[in-house]
Write a protein that binds this DNA or RNA. Sequence first.
DNA 1: CTGTTAGCGCATTCAG
DNA 2: CTGAATGCGCTAACAG
Lengths: 336, 336
Amino acid sequence: MARKAVTLSDVASAAGVSLATASKALNGRTEVKVETRLRVVAAAREISFSHNSIARSLARGRSGTVGLLTSDLEGRFSLPVLMGAEDALGVDEITVLLCDARGDSIREQHHITTLLSRQIDGLLVVGSRTDARPSLGRKIGIPVIYVYTPSADPADLSLTPDNVEAGRIAARHLITTGRTQIAHIRGEVDNQASIDRAKGISEVLGEAGLPIVNDAGYGEWTERWGRSATSMLLDGATEIDAVLCDSDQIARGALDALRAHDRRVPEDVSLMGFDNWTVITAETRPGITSVDMNLEYMGRLAAHTLFASIEGKPVDSGIEYLPCRLVVRGSTMFDR
Amino acid sequence: MARKAVTLSDVASAAGVSLATASKALNGRTEVKVETRLRVVAAAREISFSHNSIARSLARGRSGTVGLLTSDLEGRFSLPVLMGAEDALGVDEITVLLCDARGDSIREQHHITTLLSRQIDGLLVVGSRTDARPSLGRKIGIPVIYVYTPSADPADLSLTPDNVEAGRIAARHLITTGRTQIAHIRGEVDNQASIDRAKGISEVLGEAGLPIVNDAGYGEWTERWGRSATSMLLDGATEIDAVLCDSDQIARGALDALRAHDRRVPEDVSLMGFDNWTVITAETRPGITSVDMNLEYMGRLAAHTLFASIEGKPVDSGIEYLPCRLVVRGSTMFDR
DNA sequence: CTGTTAGCGCATTCAG
DNA sequence: CTGAATGCGCTAACAG
């Protein structure tokens, strides 16, 4: 019933070799005659041997695991990153120890301690906003990569979306499709993603000699805010022909409000969001054009880089801004 | 820079005791004089000692980790379960090895092998639908609990929502609020959750002598389907005063369609969903009443039960149906 | 109560 | 090329 713990020495005796030779054979070391390796491998399979990675880790001094410390599993940003990382790491035969700090730094510290005691080989720290966070410091002794939420310390390596470029992409798309009176409905005040996007947007609009309508001010990342901000905009003095929202949820709210005010989308007003949360963007009529942050790719890249770093390869430091991707849907598109 | 690996024997010599005594003291074993324990603990903190859990695991024969095998991280069902489990397990000082099989059974088998080689003490298998899945069998040698998606083998322990009761709860709520012509818009055909809910619904309606309108047939779990099904219903012969949708997304689509057909919600038609996915249900106007599946609680319970089982305590087997919870919002409520 | 002695299962020198 | 010996860091009998 309970696994009868078939060990390496079982394999060894089954193959008629020593423990050491069996080990070498199974690990593909060169110092073993091909013939004996085959014999060992056969024996191992015969008695269905499987390495005990705990023992192996202890002997090797490497655990073959990495920690994944998330600040907030609930949010929709951590999860894609997590998926990408889990996927990429699996290929390298290393497994993920998952910890959710739930936004509590006490909890985070606790998790780090236990992760370290479990001898993780590396650590991925993923957050759910793009504002910088305090560094974990260098004393941890293993490679650490910050994902989505960058570290405030430039000596660390951080991977985060290029929101300035995202802003440019969005603005260019609206201009390309003939819009000239573009409003930007922002998320929370002092939010880095919003600030960066605004920068990219105004850069592009400025170059095109176009104004930007920013009258709505700041709010929340909710549909409710999208509705009320849009209503304010529509009641305002300046006529608009495009609304660029800092999140898909805001955009969805905006869509409701536009409809309530009898504006056709996209004929009268073009609409865009950010993040490409398909649950929101793909289900509306029309679908909402958005800028995808490539989060899963980011997770995958983080994992690969972490692995390289564990292997001792040198990696960069500082914040790396990863490209975003325009996803066009009906809300900015006349045909279809 | 690299952690200088302070070990138990360092603590021992620092405290002037033997390795064994240090171990006992740190593990809170009773066979140690209070005074010496204090000394050891002090010494340990002094040189900032931290257990090497790998070594500890090897010596104890228990890894202090459990595997969490999910079929589909992307889906919105696994995640709350995962969060609950991670949370509950953390309390018991055990950490979670995460694996996502992505719905691929080859991949699943592979993950199980590596999890087993990592000497996990137990395994949580969580799926994203309530239809039964094949059992992993008993030969694994460690406790396994199936969560959300139950095992087809009654010898296993499975935790899943009580969808029949969920159906009853929903139907009762609609009856209580004065509805008599209730339509049920179903999700995918042959889906167990839908079947179970339909059973609960018709049971309650039957007892109340009320009909059930089921004309729309089956579709997908999307807003689109909610819209078209509702339109069909509204164009049909029978007048309805309530729509019960198999998911919140369907309900949101239904809300759109009802509005397009000039039906007021909830004055003319009452509307409900299932799952209580707040991203959907809380953002509409009015909010959508739904039945919450208590997934996070389910994850927590699964973790506790798994832990008990690891501890050798006897646990039940078979499918355990966990209670759901009505969450009332504006779509079924006149006041407010 | 404390210390000594064995392993846990495996990778790795280092002789043969 | 192979095998005997050593140790990874810790826990668990056992003696003292």
